[in-house]
């Protein structure tokens, strides 16, 4: 049995924030929830830990003592030191003091926070604070570790430390669910659920999602005109154009490229957008 949610629907003021979303989080796996702002990532994670009651659907989570959660607002006390923050969590979760000290020492050492153990959390940099938040969330070896955008606004070195913590938690057997807005980072997860406007766009391992893209992707130096404009997007200095299976596009100086995760999720969002506009066109 794994943790997760099934057919989850949450409405805020009549508008569905999540519409029939399912997610499985088996032990030892890092499951990424990826999507832009307002996609429903935080709502999904809050349902998973029990901070929101869903309107429909079921939630499978362990007892509160075995859940670790880092909310998007960091969740550490700025007026407590690093050590005091961790002490509070360890005591609340009933971690034996010796075990708590051992874990704290290991995690603080590995993530470069050992020197800062006496500093107030409010005086830490954003990256250090996020690392503290994750260490706090996993101080009791949770069965389910839920992290809401732990790497947002964090420098690359701290990000590597954070991913070490995530991998370590999974290696200890935790089911890790992690939300991120960064697709490049999402590739580190073993399983991904891509959300858009409360709907699941794509699901699978990063490779499965990338290879599951139908049609072809070309690069272009300029944004194409006409109907193709709606199927193109900027990526770095160049543009990319998606051609659905069976369609013929003429893209000047367009080279066909192997789609990656970024392309696959973008195309999935495009397809959904086109379908929605077709539906709206059909109604009117």
């Amino acid at each position: 049995m794994s943790w997760g949610v099934r057919d989850l629907t949450v409405r805020f003021g009549g508008h569905p924030a999540l519409a029939g979303v399912s997610l499985d989080a088996p032990d030892g796996r890092v499951t990424g929830v990826v999507g832009g702002d307002g996609a429903g990532k935080t709502t999904l994670l809050r349902c998973l830990v029990g901070a929101i009651r869903p309107d429909e659907g079921e939630v499978r989570r362990p007892d509160a003592r075995r859940v670790g959660y880092l909310s998007s607002t960091s969740g550490t006390y700025p007026d407590l030191t690093v050590e005091e923050n961790l002490d509070f969590a360890a005591t609340t979760y009933g971690v034996p003091p010796a075990e708590a000290r051992r874990r704290m020492a290991e995690h603080l050492e590995r993530t470069g926070l050992a020197q800062a153990r006496g500093r107030l959390a409010g005086d830490l940099s954003g990256g250090m604070r996020q690392k503290l938040g994750v260490i706090r969330a996993m101080v009791h070896r949770p069965a389910l570790l839920v992290l809401d955008e732990p790497t947002t606004g964090v420098d690359p070195v701290s990000r590597a430390d954070l991913w070490w913590l995530v991998a370590h938690a999974a290696a200890e057997g935790a089911a890790v669910v992690l939300a991120t807005a960064y697709l490049d980072e999402a590739e580190r997860a073993s399983w991904l659920v891509a959300l858009d406007d409360g709907h699941v766009l794509a699901e699978g391992s990063p490779d499965q999602i990338a290879s599951g893209l139908s049609g072809t992707i070309r690069t272009a130096s300029e944004r194409p005109d006409g109907e193709m404009a709606g199927r193109s997007w900027r990526r770095g200095a160049r543009w990319r154009v998606w051609t659905p299976p069976g369609a013929e596009d003429v893209v000047p100086d367009g080279d066909v490229v192997d789609p990656d995760l970024n392309d696959a999720v973008t195309v999935a969002a495009l397809i959904r957008e086109l379908e929605l506009s077709n539906e709206r066109g059909g109604v009117s």
Binding site: D63, Y69, S71, T73, A89, T92
Partner: peptide
């Protein structure tokens, strides 16, 4: 305000 109330809500308290 610090956003820690939600954290407390999901802790075993």
């Amino acid at each position: 305000q610090a956003g820690t109330l939600e954290q407390l809500a999901v802790m075993p308290l």
